[in-house]
Nucleic acid binder design. Sequence first.
DNA 1: ACATTGACCTGAGAGC
DNA 2: TGCTCTCAGGTCAATG
Length: 262
Amino acid sequence: MPELPDVETRRRYIDATALHQKIKSAVVNAPRMLKGISAKDLISALKSHAFSETGRHGKFLFVRFDDKAWLVLHFGMSGTLAYTKDESAVPEGARLRIDFANGYHLAGIWQRRLGRIGLTVDPATFVKQEGLGPDAMTPGIDLSTFKRMLGGRRGSVKPALMDQKFIAGIGNIYSDEMLFQAGLDPRHAADGLDDDQLADLHRAMRHVLRIAIERQADPGRMPHSWLLPQRRKGGVCPRCGTPLRQIKVSGRTAHLCPQCQR
DNA sequence: ACATTGACCTGAGAGC
DNA sequence: TGCTCTCAGGTCAATG
């Protein structure tokens, strides 16, 4: 579930595992996932360095290994990481494997190959190049900024939240959760929200991300009062018990309570 | 500028 | 059981 909370959890995972370990070698087994660099160049760039620092912007994870060199990872729909002691424990589907001098391995696992591996000189440069909006967790997106940003947008509120060039980090699942907690229909016009609705949505955005990160983005650990655990066939609104509805909003499946979300 | 669709990949689950 | 179909948390390009 690689939205912002998932990627943040992976970032902390690297901090707790592979950070400061000397890189001995690496293997890349997904040429199509590489952007702007060959496997050969990536491997020789990493070799004999160590990860010194991690960063994140939206759904992108950055791992520094040199003065002006950061590894960039995007997890697509199902990508994840695993730090293992034995090479035999590296899961099937590892497209990137970094071998450390301590004998451990960090695997980037993209079963479906939907994701991205690259390099950048620093995260800020990358964010600018990609045209990403501010990270959804930055304190800079205060209520008045949020209002101003949404006010200028055509279209529905859900796709606006999910637009990475608008705000970076929110995907299909958590946008549904935010809209549920704010009591808003995902099809509501983005620029037609009143002040109360904007304040509710802003609060829900921050709250959902904060709690989801606290719970390590584990779907099994989300509060029962949330939509997320009910986001399945036969799910009901945790507030009023009404069966949830499933609709398409700008091509994506949205789950909502027809009673609580207007 | 927006929505829609299909493509990219693979696995899981539903339905027959 | 095994086959086929549809769909899935993300992005991107093409089309209307």
